[in-house]
Design a protein around this nucleic acid. Structure first.
Length: 425
RNA sequence: GCGGCUAUGGCGAAGUGGUUAACGCACCAGAUUGUGGCUCUGGCAUUCGUGGGUUCGAUUCCCACUAGUCGCCCCA
């Protein structure tokens, strides 16, 4: 074997690609109805953008970025997530000056993270995400979450869990942070190495630790929810109220901490609860990032968004045994026998296609039997057979593959006959 | 970045330190010289991920590499 695909990447082959198209189409249609517009940004950005936005203490920045120097000596990074670039573009193109606020955007495309591949984890994966910039109305938080849920529901997923938390605003976080440090400080030596280093850098993440989750101090640790100031608390309550009014079930998990530094207030994850899904169950993650636009050099602008992986969405569909209604099969297969008939079939195939039908023929010089077999394999609804006999009479035989019935129609009425047959099917 | 398991034809899968590598599916041909889905017959891996080692001999034993897979960390 001379070449193989790079680790953690995948070819999406025919048969599978149709599912992607179906999902993408569904996502676009939902965005249209929610009035989110597509934005396409480059696949790479200046490294500095991600250091600033994602946060240089995060795992993404510390060990997962595809960073390289280009020929001009610039440090370039393949985007590990979508929000940074959208915000960069928002600022660079002065979308904050757009009279239509908030600016509601969506994107779909590959992201890159240098990781060990695993079930549901790839080095190149596709994210669909939305960002709403310019509003701090809790209704937009609920709208963004509803949009994600609608996509999953419209594809038939049922076994989902929406988990919510509020990370609060800056003063709330600061107070909570201090409370956490005070809580763990005395006995931090009883915790894992990671947690020990988290104590000063980001004590909130200790709560998220899988290793030490049973430690008694975890139970009694101060919850962010108790440290939210009035403004933050009311905001979170309003988001929950709206979700409830929308009939979207959720649970509040005060331990939910998102991996990127830029989040505040609303944080949420949508997870699959399907049996045998594997270790990674997060389908979608998102939250509010009110300081990010300013961090990137724009005016103070609130924002909220989410990102979800199409790969994991497909895995969730598979886990729930859902088959997407992707069209398969063709309308007509033209079997041609003999040189003259083959010459004629070139034209007939073209005519059918131009009138909207999905049509195929033989290009392998196969015998009748094999051509019929090929038609069967392609799940063709009809087969049209043209040989010397038919050519002489200026007719063509049409066989309904489901019933086996066969009739002859004149060549000049062939296209019209096929059209009505296919449409009435 | 760390650990477990795996690597045989287009796919699934058995197998043994020794001159012919099961089987199933798919595919091709024929039985049916102009008609598919069923049946029958035949065909289809100078070769067992790559490289090296042990051995008289390795697909089978050992090592490395690569890849897949599952898990840890973390995330989408």
């Amino acid at each position: 074997m001379s070449f193989q695909i790079p680790r953690g990447t995948q070819d999406i082959l025919p048969g599978e690609a149709e599912k992607w198209q179906y999902i993408e189409q569904m996502a676009r249609d939902i965005c249209r109805r929610y009035n989110y517009q597509e934005i396409r940004t480059p696949i790479f950005e200046h490294t500095e953008l991600f250091l600033r936005s994602v946060g240089d203490t995060t795992d993404i920045v510390q060990k997962e970025m595809y960073t390289f120097e280009d020929r001009g000596g610039r440090s370039i990074t393949l985007r590990p997530e979508g929000t940074a670039a959208v915000v960069r573009s928002f600022v660079e193109n002065k979308m904050y000056g757009n009279p239509n606020q908030p600016v509601k955007l969506y994107y779909m495309g590959p992201m890159f993270r240098y990781e060990r591949p695993q079930a549901g984890r790839f080095r190149q994966f596709v994210q669909f995400g939305v960002e709403a910039l310019g509003s701090s109305d809790p209704a937009i938080d609920a709208e963004v979450i509803a949009l994600a849920m609608e996509l999953y529901h419209s594809l038939g997923l049922k076994k989902l869990k929406l988990v919510m938390n509020s990370l609060g605003d800056a003063p709330s976080r600061k107070a909570h942070r201090q409370a956490l440090i005070d809580h763990f400080k005395g006995r931090i030596s009883e915790f894992c190495e990671d947690c020990q280093s988290r104590l000063e850098k980001n004590p909130m993440r200790i709560l998220d630790c899988k290793k030490d989750r049973d430690h008694e101090l975890m139970e009694t640790a101060p919850s962010i929810l108790d440290y939210l100031n009035d403004e933050s608390r009311l905001y979170f309550e309003k988001v929950q109220l709206y979700l409830t009014k929308l009939g979207i079930a959720f649970e509040v998990d005060p331990r939910l901490v998102r991996g990127l530094d830029y989040y505040n207030h609303t944080a949420f994850e949508i997870m699959s609860e399907a049996e045998g899904f594997g270790a990674i169950t997060t389908l979608c993650g998102g939250g509010r990032y009110n300081g990010l636009v300013q961090e990137i050099g724009g005016p103070e602008t609130p924002g909220i968004g989410f990102a979800l992986s199409i790969e994991r969405l497909l895995a969730a569909l598979a886990a729930e045994g859902i088959t997407l209604p992707v069209a398969q099969g063709i309308d007509c297969f033209i079997v041609a026998l003999g040189e003259k008939a083959k010459d004629e079939s070139v034209i007939l195939v073209n005519k059918l296609r131009q009138s909207g039908m999905k049509v195929e023929r033989d290009y392998q010089d196969r015998k009748v039997k094999a051509q019929l077999k090929a038609a069967d394999r392609l799940e063709s609804a009809y087969v049209a057979i043209l040989g010397d006999d038919e050519l002489e009479k200026q007719v063509i035989a049409i066989k309904n593959m489901a019933t086996g019935e066969q009739t002859e129609v004149s060549l000049h009425s062939f296209v019209q006959y096929m059209k009505t047959a296919v449409e009435s099917k």
